[in-house]
Nucleic acid binder design. Structure first.
Lengths: 340, 340
DNA sequence: GTGAAAGCGCTAACAC
DNA sequence: GTGTTAGCGCTTTCAC
């Protein structure tokens, strides 16, 4: 017994017609008579015929598959983006194929090549923190549409979906000012990722706009952005002769670390020190006090990236005019910053 | 200018040899002379030849692709499992294709069919909460290897990778007893998912083993297992004439809810009420007090599932003897339960 | 309205 | 050691 899969040939043989007629009938071709169509479709159902997508892909030179490269699946933000991509792609009849680079450039290059060899129709990417060289993506964009999200670079002239980090940081900082904070510190992300730089810029500009001084002692690096870093950075801030009375953190995990340090120092949040994070991780509404944070619209981002990619897939002209879509962030005010 | 992709034919033409020789040279076939191999490989590199995986797949009747069906990507546990699957599959030269069902049976059936049509070589599944009928997976297992993880059913005679929920619950309960808890309550998951039932069974058996009574008033349902449910269930427990002095929760989110209710009631954790969760979500080490919890080895589970699937892929015999692999959980003792 | 034939890109039996 | 041929399953041009 052979591989059990029914093919068009089998249907044709059973019905005593040609494979081409079967193919046309299955694809509802106008030339085929209604009777033939019915015969074919009935038999197909009866025998559980399922088209071989691989053969279709080879024939049509497209796969109806979208590749996605992200740094880490376990990051809440990225997993929400994936959900958004998947939702839109699925509705449009596309399959999605993911690779995670674990923030490794080398892995990213390999994944890119592998996806390309799989003959994906288009690629959606958030590149790794390590990535400085974008040749592999330049190669991609010569062949198929490419859309970047969250992390961007000027070296790639393709569509980009990003979040307004500057504005989010500005809102967060302004909110702290409105809560009567006078010495606002910042736990900053890495400058070489746009997101880190933009958040810092939003923070600094907002201080200036309010006639407050930007104090370099109040800006500490949290490049990895994890809890430990946040914890130690906050301890250093508390050791200053005049510690801050508010902190804007480049992400929620760093904010958690800061929170821990503040509590251990016997200070109260938000009374002594108000705290704002960035990203709206799941846990930020669960901790005590609940963390004020800037929500990034992950699902929307995924949706937007997939929509744009699919649009470029359908209309090649669009690829000549890449867009840069900026999604608004949302300041979610919770206890950690409310001094009312 | 045509599709810019270099094919074997192009290489053959340029070198004045036949396509089959090129193919053999690229695949390092022993028959081919070293000189020819070198010529071919050099030209391939020069012209950036990349094999068309789709054509290879059609030819070989396999895709070197593993399908994965999971309920939700944004759940931390599932995202860790994916990481594990991806890691092993990648090393073994397999590509992974994910679908998320969002806990919908209908979507699961569609995804299964779509993956099958993509001609995946094997499938790894954690089925949706809605799924009661397993025909779609029975169809799968007739054709290709299928491995279940986390959620299992007797209706499928295939390999299963599960976590020892019973043992995890027993450890957690015993730990609470060792911490001198006398009235231990349980926020229980749904009975129709094995995981919920097993955790409850582990809890009850451990109480009995220690000559403690199982008090039905102390067992409250938390079927969705979210924060709100945990919160309200805990409030009901606190309203009892004799409230418990410890609670074992079916998952960390419910435990978070319980924690909130306890704090609001002005009670102390762990002094007045000790708390243990299940799953070791990211946040459980971040909250105050840090949550004791039973860690499920998500990454290991993914690795084990992928390893088993690949083994069955390579050796058809193995499919006749499905295994049931039980992974040990790990009790992570933190502040929320330590009364020392 | 339907069939025959060719070809998507690759590989493996079979020749020599 | 290399070429010829055929075929994986599907679709589409070209015939009739």
């Amino acid at each position: 017994m052979k591989s059990s899969q029914v093919t068009i040939k089998d249907l044709a043989k059973t019905l005593g017609i040609s494979p081409s007629t079967v193919s046309r009938a299955l694809n509802d071709h106008p030339d085929i008579s209604p009777e033939t169509k019915k015969e074919v479709n009935d038999l197909a159902k009866k025998l559980n015929y399922e088209p071989n997508v691989v053969a279709q892909n080879l024939r049509s030179q497209k796969t109806n598959t979208i590749g996605v490269i992200i740094p880490e699946i376990v990051h809440f933000f990225f997993s929400t983006v994936i959900s958004g991509i998947e939702e839109v792609a699925y509705k449009a009849g596309y399959t999605v194929m993911f690779c995670q680079t674990s923030e490794s450039y080398e892995r990213e290059v390999k994944d890119t090549k592998a996806l390309l060899n799989q003959r994906i129709d288009g690629l959606i990417v958030s590149f790794s923190k390590e990535t400085q060289n974008f040749e592999h993506f330049q190669e991609v964009s010569k062949k198929i549409p490419l859309v970047l999200f969250d992390r961007e670079t000027d070296e790639l002239n393709v569509s980009k979906i990003v979040v307004d980090d500057y504005d989010g940081a500005a809102m967060a900082t302004q909110h702290l000012i409105n809560q009567k904070s006078e010495r606002i510190a910042h736990l900053a992300g890495p400058d070489n990722l746009t997101i880190g730089a933009e958040r810092k810029r939003g923070y600094e500009d907002t201080l200036r706009k309010n006639n407050m001084k930007v104090n370099p002692d109040y800006i500490l690096p949290c490049f990895k952005g994890n809890l430990e870093e946040g914890f130690h950075a906050m301890q250093r801030l508390l050791d200053l002769p005049t510690p801050p009375d508010a902190v804007f953190c480049t992400n929620d995990t760093a904010a958690m670390g800061a929170m821990k340090a503040i509590k251990e120092a016997g200070l109260e949040i938000p009374k002594d020190i108000a705290l704002v994070g960035f990203s709206n991780w799941q846990f930020s509404s669960l901790i005590e006090p609940q963390l004020t944070t800037v929500a990034q619209p992950g699902v929307d981002m995924g949706r937007a990236a997939a929509k744009r990619l699919i649009a470029e897939l359908k209309d090649k002209e669009l690829r000549e005019q890449p867009i840069r879509q900026v999604l608004k962030t949302d300041l979610i005010i919770r206890k950690s910053s409310k001094r009312s």
